[in-house]
């Protein structure tokens, strides 16, 4: 597979390390009342779609960017690639 890195352009997927569902960005609030349940869902439950999947890839043998790749899990087509930090900020993550 080839991942079109937003900064570096097309790179072989072999340079990257895969983590999983981009929902792993949405780490729950540790002080919330339902923190235990929220962390369970965050850590263990997955949509696991057959189709478009937003997922985290790390450019380990590259510029060390974490990317959010939107990829079809049936065709392996890659539809979008974003810097994970931009996604995280857009989803309200701060310090």
């Amino acid at each position: 597979m080839i991942i079109n890195h937003p900064i570096l352009g097309p790179r072989d997927a072999q340079e990257f390390t895969y983590l999983g569902d981009a929902a792993l960005i949405d780490r729950p609030d540790w002080q919330a009342d339902n923190a235990a349940e929220a962390f369970h869902d965050y850590l263990y439950l997955r949509d696991n779609p057959a189709g478009e999947h937003r997922e985290l890839w790390f450019h380990e043998q590259g510029d060390r960017s974490w990317l959010v790749v939107t990829r079809n899990t049936v065709t392996h087509d890659i539809l979008n690639v974003e810097l994970a930090r931009d996604v995280a900020r857009a989803r309200g993550r701060r310090k």
Partner: peptide
């Protein structure tokens, strides 16, 4: 292969 897939096929690496 290491990435989520329903494709029943993998890649060369």
């Amino acid at each position: 292969d290491g990435y989520n897939s329903y494709a029943q096929r993998g890649n060369l690496p």
